[in-house]
Structure formats: structure tokens, C-alpha cells
Simulated scan of single mutants.
Amino acid sequence: MKKIFLLSTIIFLSVQCKAQSHIVNSIDCDSNFDHSSGDYYRKDMNNIMDNYVGTWKWTSGNKEFILTLIKQVKHHYHETGNDNYYEDRLVGYYQYKENGVIIADTSSDNNLSTDYGMKVMFILDCHSQIASIAFKDYKKYKSFEVVLESLSPTQIKMNMYEREHNIIINKKTGERNPPVDPQGGSTFPMEMILTKQ
């Protein structure tokens, strides 16, 4: 009976130890973690991302840009490559109008839980900076590096930087992604100060 109890206790403790995750502060630049082990969690321990959650608006004359950000806590990255870890992130969508006419709108991107194909996704990097993993200007067939900076509880600054653009051609079908070469510039301003709505 003692052997069964001892064996049960060892198995229970082994399972409990395996179920524990390694929690790493997102802003800890010295932390290395295994992206493929499934037991690491990059956590926004200081709740920095909370300052960016909500709907933000920029206007200038007849132009209007609206950015909506949602915080996803302990999102499981597992859809691409060897990634198998958890991380807090910001996802969302934007809408850009000129003269009241919608020029670009990603609000129909209703699956914000995916890892692949997102148009708006940010993480908290180890320098306490909200930086884009994905920010796509689909009208220009371009992706941008975007950094958000909190100016006050009601204002953030958004800076966009061009990145290299790759064209992928499917060998079997000959299909291009994007279908045409990226176009010059951006659909909306590359620097904006947005106000919380």
C-alpha cells in the first residue's frame, strides 16, 4: 500500500512540475526562452499594453484614421513553424477615410486569434516598446514596422517605417503574393498622434 501511495505521489508531482510554465517578463531583454517547448509565457507583467487598449482616432482636415486595439492575454503561438509558446499581444484593425469615404478598412478581419495573415498585431518588446509584428497596408500591398508610444492616458503616437517587401511565387500555381508589386508610399500618414475615443 505504501508503494502505491509513493508511486502515486511521484506521478502527481511529475505531472504538476511539467504543467508549470516558465513566465518571462516581456520587457526582460536578458531572457532567452525556447519558442518551441510549449511551456514559456512572455507576460506583460507591468500591464504596459493596457495603456493602448481601446479605439484611437486621428483627424486632419478631411482625413480620418481609426485604430482599434484589443489585448489578448496568454495567446498560444502554434500555427507557424516551430513556434509553441504563449505571449500577451495587441491585435485589432483600422479604418481610414477621406471626405467621409472609406479608403481602407480591416474591421472585417474577424478572426483575431490566428497567428498568420493578421493585418494588425503588436507585442511588447524588451525595451518596453509596443512594436508591430504585423501591420499591413493592404491597399499598397505593403507591410510596415510600426511603433506606438504613449504620450498621455488619452494620446498615443504611431510611427510607421517601411520594411523590405518580399514577393512569394507558388511554384505549383504560379500565383504571386502579393498579386502585384508593392506601390510607393502609404495609404495613410506614416506618423500620427491618435486620441482615445
Rank of each mutant, 00 (worst) to 15 (best):
Y77S: 13
D137F: 08
I103P: 10
D88L: 03
N110G: 03
Q183V: 10
N25M: 05
Q20A: 00
S21M: 02
R176V: 12
F144T: 00
F12R: 01
M49W: 02
N99Q: 09
T59G: 07
D88R: 01
E149S: 15
K196S: 00
G61N: 11
I70A: 03
E98L: 05
T80H: 08
I123D: 09
Y141V: 03
T187C: 13
W58F: 14
Y116F: 07
S108I: 00
K63N: 07
M118C: 06
I123Q: 11
F12I: 00
H76Q: 08
Y161N: 14
V180T: 13
P153C: 03
Q72D: 10
E175H: 07
S37N: 14
E79H: 06
G174C: 15
D181E: 05
Q16W: 09
Q129R: 12
Y141S: 13
I11H: 10
Y77H: 14
D88M: 02
A19L: 10
K139F: 04
K43G: 04
Y116V: 03
N51C: 07
K18T: 01
I27D: 03
K97C: 02
K97V: 02
Q155F: 02
S150A: 15
I156T: 06
V146E: 04
V73L: 02
Y77E: 13
S186L: 05
V15T: 08
D181T: 04
L112N: 02
C29S: 15
L194G: 12
